[in-house]
Simulated assay, not measured.
Amino acid sequence: MKVVVFLLILGLFCFNQTSGVTHSLQYFYTASTEISNFPEFVAVGMLDGIQFYYYDSNSKQAVPKQNWVNEAADPRYWERNTANCLGSQQSFKANIDIVKQRFNQTGGVHTFQKMYGCQWDDESKATDGFNQFGYDGEDFITLDLKNLRCIASTPESLITKNKWDNDRAWLENNRNYFTTECIDWLKKYLQYGSSTLERKVRPEVTLLQKDTAVMCHATGFYPEGVMITLKRDGEEMLDDVDVGETLPNEDGTFQKRAVLTVSPEMKKGQYTCEVAHKSGPPTFKTLIVEDGNILGIIIGCVVAVAVVTGVIVAIVMMKKKGYKKAEQSDSESDHSNGART
């Protein structure tokens, strides 16, 4: 998987499926140079695609992005996580300088990134962990947890691979974290965040026609999996439709849009947008366009059971064992988190 710039990372979330069973806990670290109005280091924590944790080098403070996080944590939780982020900030600053030297680079915009975390299937109980590093938007080095070794993606990362492969303590520390500790934290967070993560909020749908485009915009929905269908005179439009990424809103909900490009001879007609979401029956809006004028807007819901198809990765809420409040940091140990390249 290509590692992308932090701003794009926030748009890469998992989807929900009616039979979903897979949960994920992910952290994204990004160090950068010479990016205007952007912190030199940012850390973001995501639970099932929802941001719950944030730190940057400007504030130098790890903070919750969801109220339920504090219910899972003891009073010193944020103090410990802030200290861990400060340590990672220093390590990443050194790492980006080291990697720049290996690529024979001096100034300019550069990023050094890390994505790590774990997944848990609450039906099969299968678990998995991942620890990946990227430089300037390309893979740099990846931990192969199954074989407990590193995979170098570039000649410049071979030095790092050899160094980490020979550090058995570092490898064993990663095995323990990703197979045990990370999974425990994932289950704890699912338990305490269930009231937020299990909610279902219907989308607000807007259908607009302007010049050579008809746009359907759905926003304010939760969870994030939706299917948008655009029709003209009752016929589903498959060509010339651009469906955008699912993006987060500041309140924890999501938005998505689909745009149909229409030729001059297609401007007239009845355009309908249907938005299917697991919160209830599909929502639809219809525009009746004649000679460039909108003659009517029809708003309604299909009286039927909503079946959301075509979604990609399953994420559902866990309603099982309870957990005590946390008495340590949920991030990796300093040795694992701050490993030098």
Results as ranks from 00 to 15, higher is better:
F103P: 06
I50K: 09
V205D: 10
N104C: 14
L190A: 08
D121W: 01
D144H: 05
S57V: 02
F140H: 06
V4P: 06
I9L: 14
E332W: 05
K285C: 04
G269L: 10
I315D: 07
F221C: 11
W68E: 15
I297C: 08
A126R: 05
Q209G: 10
N70A: 13
Q119V: 04
E123R: 10
V289G: 04
H277V: 02
V289H: 03
S153H: 05
T253D: 06
Q119P: 04
T261I: 01
E156D: 06
T160D: 12
F112H: 11
L186K: 04
E198V: 00
E332F: 04
S153F: 01
K285R: 15
K60V: 00
C85T: 00
G129V: 02
A276K: 11
Q51D: 14
G280P: 08
A152K: 05
A62M: 09
T246Q: 12
G225D: 14
T30P: 02
T30V: 00
A218G: 08
V305L: 10
A94D: 14
G338F: 05
G244P: 13
R199D: 12
Y271F: 15
E332V: 00
D233Y: 05
T22Y: 12
V289N: 09
Y54E: 13
T179S: 12
E265G: 10
L207Y: 04
E236N: 07
G129E: 11
W164Y: 02
T286I: 03
H335K: 11
N104M: 14
K187R: 14
G45R: 02
Y222T: 01
T286G: 07
G234H: 08
Q255S: 03
A306E: 15
V303K: 14
C150V: 01
W170P: 02
N176E: 13
V5G: 11
K200E: 14
N249I: 03
C118Q: 03
A326T: 01
A339D: 13
A304Y: 10
V201G: 05
D56T: 00
A72K: 10
L260T: 01
S59V: 01
C182T: 01
Q66Y: 04
S157Y: 02
A126M: 11
R340V: 00
D167W: 02
S32R: 09
G310S: 11
M115V: 01
A72Y: 13
F284Q: 07
I151T: 04
A339Q: 14
K231I: 00
N249D: 14
T179Y: 08
G137P: 14
F140T: 02
G134K: 03
H335S: 12
A126Q: 12
T261F: 11
A314G: 13
T283R: 05
R199S: 09
K188S: 12
G137A: 12
K60M: 08
D139M: 02
L143W: 09
W164K: 01
V259L: 13
Q89N: 12
D97G: 09
E34G: 01
E40V: 01
T283P: 00
A126P: 08
